[in-house]
Write a protein that binds this DNA or RNA. Structure first.
Lengths: 205, 205
DNA sequence: CAGAAAATCATGTAAAAGGGGGAAGGAAGA
DNA sequence: TCTTCCTTCCCCCTTTTACATGATTTTCTG
Protein backbone atom coordinates (compact mmCIF):
# COMPACT_ATOMS: atom_id res chain seq x y z
CA UNK A 1 0.00 0.00 0.00
CA UNK A 2 1.26 3.41 -0.99
CA UNK A 3 2.34 5.88 1.65
CA UNK A 4 0.16 8.99 1.60
CA UNK A 5 2.39 12.05 1.85
CA UNK A 6 1.23 15.57 2.63
CA UNK A 7 3.38 18.68 2.54
CA UNK A 8 3.23 21.89 4.53
CA UNK A 9 5.51 24.55 3.10
CA UNK A 10 4.84 28.13 2.09
CA UNK A 11 7.43 28.02 -0.68
CA UNK A 12 5.82 27.06 -3.90
CA UNK A 13 9.08 26.03 -5.49
CA UNK A 14 9.91 23.68 -2.65
CA UNK A 15 6.48 22.10 -2.86
CA UNK A 16 6.93 21.69 -6.60
CA UNK A 17 10.37 20.22 -6.07
CA UNK A 18 9.18 17.61 -3.64
CA UNK A 19 6.19 16.80 -5.77
CA UNK A 20 8.34 16.18 -8.80
CA UNK A 21 10.75 14.11 -6.74
CA UNK A 22 7.98 11.93 -5.38
CA UNK A 23 6.02 11.69 -8.61
CA UNK A 24 8.23 8.99 -9.99
CA UNK A 25 8.13 6.94 -6.82
CA UNK A 26 5.67 4.05 -6.88
CA UNK A 27 5.22 3.59 -3.15
CA UNK A 28 4.17 7.19 -2.66
CA UNK A 29 0.78 8.77 -3.00
CA UNK A 30 0.57 12.55 -3.16
CA UNK A 31 -2.06 13.61 -0.65
CA UNK A 32 -1.69 17.32 -1.31
CA UNK A 33 -0.09 20.33 0.25
CA UNK A 34 -0.77 23.35 2.45
CA UNK A 35 0.96 26.71 2.45
CA UNK A 36 0.36 27.46 6.10
CA UNK A 37 -0.55 25.92 9.42
CA UNK A 38 -4.20 26.88 9.21
CA UNK A 39 -4.96 25.10 5.96
CA UNK A 40 -2.90 22.16 7.13
CA UNK A 41 -5.20 21.67 10.12
CA UNK A 42 -8.22 22.18 7.89
CA UNK A 43 -6.98 19.47 5.56
CA UNK A 44 -6.38 17.05 8.42
CA UNK A 45 -10.00 17.39 9.51
CA UNK A 46 -11.00 15.84 6.18
CA UNK A 47 -8.36 13.17 5.87
CA UNK A 48 -5.12 12.02 7.43
CA UNK A 49 -2.03 11.21 5.43
CA UNK A 50 0.58 8.75 6.66
CA UNK A 51 3.45 11.19 6.60
CA UNK A 52 3.59 14.99 6.73
CA UNK A 53 6.64 16.82 5.46
CA UNK A 54 6.56 20.01 7.47
CA UNK A 55 8.57 23.19 6.99
CA UNK A 56 9.94 24.67 10.18
CA UNK A 57 9.20 28.21 9.11
CA UNK A 58 5.59 28.92 8.27
CA UNK A 59 3.90 32.27 7.86
CA UNK A 60 1.25 31.90 10.53
CA UNK A 61 2.87 29.56 13.02
CA UNK A 62 6.20 27.86 13.55
CA UNK A 63 6.49 24.28 12.37
CA UNK A 64 7.52 23.41 15.91
CA UNK A 65 4.15 24.48 17.28
CA UNK A 66 2.19 23.02 14.39
CA UNK A 67 3.97 19.72 14.91
CA UNK A 68 2.80 19.58 18.50
CA UNK A 69 -0.75 20.47 17.56
CA UNK A 70 -0.94 17.85 14.84
CA UNK A 71 0.50 15.11 17.02
CA UNK A 72 -1.95 15.90 19.81
CA UNK A 73 -4.97 15.60 17.54
CA UNK A 74 -3.70 12.98 15.12
CA UNK A 75 -1.07 10.85 16.91
CA UNK A 76 -0.98 8.30 14.12
CA UNK A 77 0.38 10.76 11.58
CA UNK A 78 4.15 10.76 11.29
CA UNK A 79 5.91 14.08 10.82
CA UNK A 80 9.19 14.86 9.13
CA UNK A 81 10.69 18.30 9.81
CA UNK A 82 11.89 20.14 6.76
CA UNK A 83 14.28 23.03 6.95
CA UNK A 84 17.05 24.88 5.19
CA UNK A 85 18.87 25.20 8.48
CA UNK A 86 20.81 22.44 10.15
CA UNK A 87 19.93 23.91 13.49
CA UNK A 88 20.38 21.62 16.43
CA UNK A 89 17.84 23.50 18.52
CA UNK A 90 15.20 23.07 15.82
CA UNK A 91 15.82 19.39 15.38
CA UNK A 92 15.61 18.82 19.10
CA UNK A 93 12.42 20.81 19.52
CA UNK A 94 10.76 19.06 16.61
CA UNK A 95 11.58 15.72 18.14
CA UNK A 96 10.30 16.83 21.52
CA UNK A 97 7.04 17.81 19.85
CA UNK A 98 6.59 14.43 18.26
CA UNK A 99 8.37 14.63 14.92
CA UNK A 100 9.79 11.35 13.65
CA UNK A 101 12.35 12.78 11.31
CA UNK A 102 14.29 15.78 10.10
CA UNK A 103 15.53 16.41 6.58
CA UNK A 104 17.31 19.37 5.06
CA UNK A 105 15.98 20.95 1.91
CA UNK A 106 19.22 20.23 0.14
CA UNK A 107 18.65 16.51 0.68
CA UNK A 108 18.75 14.19 -2.31
CA UNK A 109 15.83 12.22 -3.65
CA UNK A 110 17.20 9.06 -2.07
CA UNK A 111 17.49 10.69 1.29
CA UNK A 112 13.98 12.06 1.12
CA UNK A 113 12.59 8.65 0.15
CA UNK A 114 14.48 6.96 2.92
CA UNK A 115 13.14 9.46 5.41
CA UNK A 116 9.55 8.93 4.30
CA UNK A 117 9.68 5.14 4.25
CA UNK A 118 11.52 4.99 7.56
CA UNK A 119 9.11 7.18 9.51
CA UNK A 120 6.11 5.48 7.86
CA UNK A 121 7.25 2.35 9.68
CA UNK A 122 7.18 4.23 12.93
CA UNK A 123 10.94 4.58 13.13
CA UNK A 124 13.02 7.73 13.40
CA UNK A 125 15.00 9.25 10.56
CA UNK A 126 17.53 12.02 10.85
CA UNK A 127 19.55 13.21 7.91
CA UNK A 128 23.25 12.55 8.27
CA UNK A 129 24.01 16.15 8.91
CA UNK A 130 21.16 16.56 11.35
CA UNK A 131 22.23 13.47 13.24
CA UNK A 132 25.85 14.51 13.42
CA UNK A 133 24.93 17.93 14.67
CA UNK A 134 22.95 16.27 17.43
CA UNK A 135 25.86 14.07 18.44
CA UNK A 136 29.34 15.38 18.83
CA UNK A 137 30.42 18.43 16.93
CA UNK A 138 30.44 21.94 18.13
CA UNK A 139 26.69 22.13 18.37
CA UNK A 140 26.47 19.45 21.00
CA UNK A 141 25.73 20.32 24.57
CA UNK A 142 24.07 23.54 23.64
CA UNK A 143 23.14 25.08 26.95
CA UNK A 144 19.62 24.87 28.25
CA UNK A 145 17.98 28.27 28.47
CA UNK A 146 15.17 28.33 30.97
CA UNK A 147 11.75 29.82 30.42
CA UNK A 148 12.47 32.88 32.51
CA UNK A 149 15.85 33.43 30.93
CA UNK A 150 14.25 33.38 27.53
CA UNK A 151 11.75 36.02 28.59
CA UNK A 152 14.55 38.22 29.85
CA UNK A 153 16.55 37.56 26.72
CA UNK A 154 13.75 38.74 24.48
CA UNK A 155 13.29 41.94 26.43
CA UNK A 156 17.02 42.57 26.37
CA UNK A 157 17.03 42.22 22.60
CA UNK A 158 14.14 44.64 22.40
CA UNK A 159 16.34 47.20 24.06
CA UNK A 160 14.96 47.15 27.60
CA UNK A 161 17.24 47.91 30.52
CA UNK A 162 17.32 45.80 33.64
CA UNK A 163 14.98 48.18 35.39
CA UNK A 164 12.47 48.17 32.58
CA UNK A 165 12.55 44.41 32.41
CA UNK A 166 12.12 44.22 36.16
CA UNK A 167 9.02 46.37 35.98
CA UNK A 168 7.53 44.42 33.15
CA UNK A 169 8.11 41.04 34.75
CA UNK A 170 7.26 42.24 38.26
CA UNK A 171 10.59 41.16 39.70
CA UNK A 172 13.58 42.99 41.13
CA UNK A 173 16.25 44.47 38.90
CA UNK A 174 18.77 42.38 40.79
CA UNK A 175 17.02 39.25 39.59
CA UNK A 176 17.06 40.45 36.04
CA UNK A 177 20.76 41.06 36.46
CA UNK A 178 21.25 37.50 37.63
CA UNK A 179 19.38 36.13 34.63
CA UNK A 180 21.44 38.35 32.40
CA UNK A 181 24.67 37.07 33.91
CA UNK A 182 23.54 33.49 33.53
CA UNK A 183 22.64 34.11 29.90
CA UNK A 184 26.06 35.59 29.22
CA UNK A 185 27.71 32.59 30.83
CA UNK A 186 25.51 29.97 29.18
CA UNK A 187 25.83 31.38 25.69
CA UNK A 188 29.47 32.26 26.13
CA UNK A 189 28.81 35.87 25.31
CA UNK A 190 31.20 38.61 26.24
CA UNK A 191 28.58 41.30 26.60
CA UNK A 192 25.04 42.22 25.65
CA UNK A 193 25.91 42.81 22.01
CA UNK A 194 27.36 39.36 21.46
CA UNK A 195 24.60 37.86 23.58
CA UNK A 196 21.95 39.18 21.22
CA UNK A 197 23.93 38.07 18.18
CA UNK A 198 24.45 34.54 19.48
CA UNK A 199 20.84 34.29 20.58
CA UNK A 200 19.61 35.34 17.16
CA UNK A 201 22.02 33.01 15.39
CA UNK A 202 20.58 30.15 17.41
CA UNK A 203 17.05 31.43 16.83
CA UNK A 204 16.36 31.78 20.51
CA UNK A 205 14.67 35.08 19.79
CA UNK B 1 15.20 31.12 -29.65
CA UNK B 2 14.90 29.56 -26.24
CA UNK B 3 16.13 31.40 -23.17
CA UNK B 4 18.94 29.49 -21.49
CA UNK B 5 18.34 29.45 -17.74
CA UNK B 6 20.87 28.50 -15.10
CA UNK B 7 20.18 28.13 -11.40
CA UNK B 8 22.36 28.69 -8.37
CA UNK B 9 20.77 27.35 -5.21
CA UNK B 10 22.09 25.01 -2.56
CA UNK B 11 18.66 23.55 -1.87
CA UNK B 12 18.13 20.51 -3.97
CA UNK B 13 14.38 20.66 -3.58
CA UNK B 14 14.21 24.21 -4.81
CA UNK B 15 16.33 23.35 -7.82
CA UNK B 16 14.05 20.41 -8.55
CA UNK B 17 10.99 22.57 -8.13
CA UNK B 18 12.19 25.18 -10.57
CA UNK B 19 13.34 22.54 -13.01
CA UNK B 20 9.94 20.90 -13.01
CA UNK B 21 8.24 24.25 -13.37
CA UNK B 22 10.35 25.21 -16.35
CA UNK B 23 10.32 21.78 -17.99
CA UNK B 24 6.93 22.32 -19.53
CA UNK B 25 7.81 25.74 -20.87
CA UNK B 26 8.76 25.80 -24.52
CA UNK B 27 10.73 29.01 -24.57
CA UNK B 28 13.07 27.84 -21.83
CA UNK B 29 16.22 25.79 -22.10
CA UNK B 30 17.62 24.28 -18.94
CA UNK B 31 21.31 25.15 -18.83
CA UNK B 32 22.02 23.42 -15.54
CA UNK B 33 22.50 24.31 -11.92
CA UNK B 34 25.15 24.95 -9.29
CA UNK B 35 24.92 24.40 -5.56
CA UNK B 36 27.39 27.12 -4.62
CA UNK B 37 29.16 30.21 -5.88
CA UNK B 38 32.34 28.37 -6.77
CA UNK B 39 30.80 25.91 -9.17
CA UNK B 40 28.67 28.66 -10.60
CA UNK B 41 31.76 30.61 -11.63
CA UNK B 42 33.33 27.41 -12.93
CA UNK B 43 30.29 26.78 -15.09
CA UNK B 44 30.29 30.29 -16.48
CA UNK B 45 33.86 29.83 -17.69
CA UNK B 46 32.55 27.13 -19.99
CA UNK B 47 29.34 28.71 -21.16
CA UNK B 48 27.05 31.62 -20.42
CA UNK B 49 23.30 31.26 -19.98
CA UNK B 50 20.91 34.10 -20.73
CA UNK B 51 19.43 34.25 -17.28
CA UNK B 52 20.69 33.09 -13.89
CA UNK B 53 18.26 32.46 -11.06
CA UNK B 54 20.39 33.08 -8.01
CA UNK B 55 19.65 32.29 -4.38
CA UNK B 56 20.57 35.04 -1.96
CA UNK B 57 21.90 32.62 0.62
CA UNK B 58 24.67 30.38 -0.58
CA UNK B 59 27.02 28.26 1.49
CA UNK B 60 30.31 29.75 0.34
CA UNK B 61 29.33 33.30 -0.56
CA UNK B 62 26.30 35.54 -0.42
CA UNK B 63 24.27 35.83 -3.58
CA UNK B 64 24.80 39.57 -3.32
CA UNK B 65 28.55 39.19 -3.75
CA UNK B 66 28.26 36.49 -6.38
CA UNK B 67 25.92 38.71 -8.34
CA UNK B 68 28.51 41.45 -8.46
CA UNK B 69 31.25 39.06 -9.49
CA UNK B 70 29.19 37.53 -12.26
CA UNK B 71 28.11 40.88 -13.64
CA UNK B 72 31.68 42.15 -13.67
CA UNK B 73 32.94 39.21 -15.68
CA UNK B 74 29.84 38.48 -17.75
CA UNK B 75 27.81 41.69 -18.10
CA UNK B 76 25.54 40.17 -20.72
CA UNK B 77 24.10 37.62 -18.32
CA UNK B 78 20.91 38.71 -16.61
CA UNK B 79 20.42 37.78 -12.98
CA UNK B 80 17.24 37.23 -11.01
CA UNK B 81 17.56 37.16 -7.23
CA UNK B 82 15.79 34.30 -5.52
CA UNK B 83 14.96 34.33 -1.85
CA UNK B 84 12.52 33.18 0.77
CA UNK B 85 12.72 36.59 2.39
CA UNK B 86 10.99 39.67 1.13
CA UNK B 87 13.81 41.77 2.52
CA UNK B 88 14.02 45.26 1.16
CA UNK B 89 17.74 45.52 1.92
CA UNK B 90 18.40 42.35 -0.09
CA UNK B 91 16.42 43.49 -3.06
CA UNK B 92 18.16 46.82 -3.09
CA UNK B 93 21.62 45.35 -2.78
CA UNK B 94 21.00 42.84 -5.50
CA UNK B 95 19.90 45.62 -7.81
CA UNK B 96 22.92 47.72 -6.91
CA UNK B 97 25.08 44.76 -7.81
CA UNK B 98 23.52 44.37 -11.21
CA UNK B 99 20.57 42.05 -10.73
CA UNK B 100 17.67 42.58 -13.10
CA UNK B 101 14.99 40.96 -11.01
CA UNK B 102 13.90 39.58 -7.70
CA UNK B 103 11.46 36.74 -7.11
CA UNK B 104 10.32 35.04 -3.93
CA UNK B 105 10.48 31.29 -3.66
CA UNK B 106 6.78 31.13 -3.03
CA UNK B 107 6.18 32.67 -6.43
CA UNK B 108 3.87 30.94 -8.88
CA UNK B 109 4.93 29.40 -12.16
CA UNK B 110 3.46 32.36 -14.04
CA UNK B 111 5.37 34.82 -11.98
CA UNK B 112 8.61 32.94 -12.45
CA UNK B 113 8.11 32.78 -16.20
CA UNK B 114 7.26 36.43 -16.37
CA UNK B 115 10.41 37.27 -14.45
CA UNK B 116 12.61 35.20 -16.75
CA UNK B 117 11.16 36.50 -19.99
CA UNK B 118 11.17 40.08 -18.77
CA UNK B 119 14.80 40.16 -17.68
CA UNK B 120 15.84 38.25 -20.80
CA UNK B 121 14.71 41.31 -22.74
CA UNK B 122 16.96 43.46 -20.62
CA UNK B 123 14.15 44.85 -18.53
CA UNK B 124 13.69 44.75 -14.79
CA UNK B 125 11.27 42.48 -13.00
CA UNK B 126 10.32 42.70 -9.35
CA UNK B 127 7.70 40.47 -7.82
CA UNK B 128 4.66 42.35 -6.61
CA UNK B 129 5.62 41.95 -3.01
CA UNK B 130 9.23 42.90 -3.64
CA UNK B 131 8.18 45.99 -5.56
CA UNK B 132 5.74 47.13 -2.93
CA UNK B 133 8.31 46.72 -0.21
CA UNK B 134 10.64 48.93 -2.22
CA UNK B 135 8.04 51.64 -2.64
CA UNK B 136 6.01 52.99 0.21
CA UNK B 137 5.37 50.77 3.17
CA UNK B 138 7.23 50.75 6.36
CA UNK B 139 10.39 49.45 4.77
CA UNK B 140 10.92 52.51 2.64
CA UNK B 141 13.59 55.02 3.48
CA UNK B 142 15.75 52.50 5.22
CA UNK B 143 18.76 54.45 6.40
CA UNK B 144 22.03 54.27 4.55
CA UNK B 145 24.74 52.66 6.63
CA UNK B 146 28.20 53.68 5.50
CA UNK B 147 31.13 51.38 4.93
CA UNK B 148 32.85 52.37 8.14
CA UNK B 149 29.70 52.14 10.18
CA UNK B 150 29.17 48.64 8.93
CA UNK B 151 32.65 47.66 10.02
CA UNK B 152 32.04 49.05 13.46
CA UNK B 153 28.63 47.40 13.58
CA UNK B 154 30.10 43.99 12.91
CA UNK B 155 32.70 44.36 15.60
CA UNK B 156 30.08 45.55 18.05
CA UNK B 157 27.99 42.47 17.34
CA UNK B 158 31.05 40.31 17.89
CA UNK B 159 31.23 41.71 21.39
CA UNK B 160 34.08 44.19 21.01
CA UNK B 161 34.15 47.28 23.17
CA UNK B 162 34.83 50.71 21.78
CA UNK B 163 38.46 50.46 22.77
CA UNK B 164 38.93 47.08 21.16
CA UNK B 165 37.28 48.29 17.99
CA UNK B 166 39.45 51.39 18.01
CA UNK B 167 42.58 49.25 18.20
CA UNK B 168 41.49 46.93 15.48
CA UNK B 169 40.53 49.71 13.08
CA UNK B 170 43.45 51.96 14.05
CA UNK B 171 41.22 54.85 14.99
CA UNK B 172 40.42 56.58 18.24
CA UNK B 173 37.83 55.24 20.66
CA UNK B 174 36.06 58.57 20.37
CA UNK B 175 35.55 57.96 16.68
CA UNK B 176 34.15 54.53 17.34
CA UNK B 177 31.81 56.11 19.83
CA UNK B 178 30.62 58.54 17.18
CA UNK B 179 29.96 55.74 14.72
CA UNK B 180 28.13 53.89 17.44
CA UNK B 181 25.94 56.88 18.18
CA UNK B 182 25.18 57.37 14.51
CA UNK B 183 24.27 53.73 14.15
CA UNK B 184 21.89 53.95 17.08
CA UNK B 185 20.26 57.00 15.55
CA UNK B 186 20.07 55.64 12.01
CA UNK B 187 18.60 52.30 12.98
CA UNK B 188 16.40 53.80 15.64
CA UNK B 189 17.90 51.59 18.28
CA UNK B 190 17.61 52.37 21.94
CA UNK B 191 20.84 50.70 22.93
CA UNK B 192 23.43 48.17 21.80
CA UNK B 193 21.14 45.21 22.34
CA UNK B 194 18.40 46.51 20.08
CA UNK B 195 21.01 47.77 17.64
CA UNK B 196 22.34 44.26 17.14
CA UNK B 197 18.86 42.81 16.86
CA UNK B 198 17.72 45.35 14.29
CA UNK B 199 20.94 44.96 12.33
CA UNK B 200 20.54 41.20 12.23
CA UNK B 201 16.90 41.43 11.29
CA UNK B 202 17.90 43.57 8.33
CA UNK B 203 20.83 41.26 7.55
CA UNK B 204 23.36 44.02 7.90
CA UNK B 205 25.60 41.61 9.76
C1' DC C 1 9.94 13.18 50.20
C1' DA C 2 14.57 14.78 49.14
C1' DG C 3 17.76 16.68 46.13
C1' DA C 4 18.38 19.41 42.09
C1' DA C 5 17.30 23.12 39.40
C1' DA C 6 15.26 27.47 38.82
C1' DA C 7 13.96 31.84 40.34
C1' DT C 8 14.30 35.23 43.49
C1' DC C 9 16.96 39.13 45.92
C1' DA C 10 21.13 42.00 47.67
C1' DT C 11 25.60 44.87 47.95
C1' DG C 12 29.45 46.84 46.01
C1' DT C 13 33.10 48.26 42.58
C1' DA C 14 34.81 48.71 37.98
C1' DA C 15 34.00 49.11 33.16
C1' DA C 16 31.39 50.35 29.33
C1' DA C 17 27.77 52.59 26.95
C1' DG C 18 24.44 56.56 26.31
C1' DG C 19 23.57 61.49 25.45
C1' DG C 20 24.80 66.21 24.72
C1' DG C 21 27.59 69.11 22.49
C1' DG C 22 31.39 70.84 19.17
C1' DA C 23 34.98 70.64 15.45
C1' DA C 24 37.89 69.79 11.35
C1' DG C 25 39.88 67.54 7.17
C1' DG C 26 38.82 65.24 2.83
C1' DA C 27 36.24 63.20 -1.02
C1' DA C 28 32.46 63.44 -4.21
C1' DG C 29 29.12 65.50 -6.66
C1' DA C 30 25.89 69.57 -8.20
C1' DT D 1 33.34 76.33 -6.38
C1' DC D 2 30.29 75.24 -2.82
C1' DT D 3 27.76 72.10 -0.39
C1' DT D 4 27.02 67.69 1.47
C1' DC D 5 28.51 63.56 3.47
C1' DC D 6 31.93 60.66 5.58
C1' DT D 7 35.37 60.10 8.70
C1' DT D 8 37.95 61.51 12.17
C1' DC D 9 38.55 63.46 16.96
C1' DC D 10 37.52 65.64 21.77
C1' DC D 11 35.00 66.83 26.42
C1' DC D 12 31.59 66.15 30.19
C1' DC D 13 28.29 63.76 32.75
C1' DT D 14 24.74 60.05 33.57
C1' DT D 15 23.05 55.59 33.07
C1' DT D 16 23.68 50.91 32.41
C1' DT D 17 26.14 46.85 32.30
C1' DA D 18 29.86 43.62 33.99
C1' DC D 19 31.83 40.96 37.64
C1' DA D 20 32.21 39.07 42.31
C1' DT D 21 29.85 36.86 46.12
C1' DG D 22 26.40 35.26 48.77
C1' DA D 23 21.75 33.82 50.05
C1' DT D 24 16.63 32.47 50.23
C1' DT D 25 12.54 30.53 48.27
C1' DT D 26 9.98 28.05 44.85
C1' DT D 27 9.39 24.41 41.59
C1' DC D 28 10.34 20.41 39.30
C1' DT D 29 11.58 15.59 39.25
C1' DG D 30 13.42 11.04 40.40
Amino acid sequence: MAIKVFIVDDHYMVVEGIRSLLQSEKGIEWAGHAMNAGSCMAFLKQQQPDVILMDINLPDKSGIDLCKEVKEKYPSVYIVGLSTFNQQSFIQKMQENGASGYVLKNASQNELMEAITTVAKGKTYLSDEAASSLKGDKNAGFPVITRREKEVLKLIAEGSTNNEIANRLFISAATVDTHRKNLLAKLGAKNTASLVRIAMEHRLI
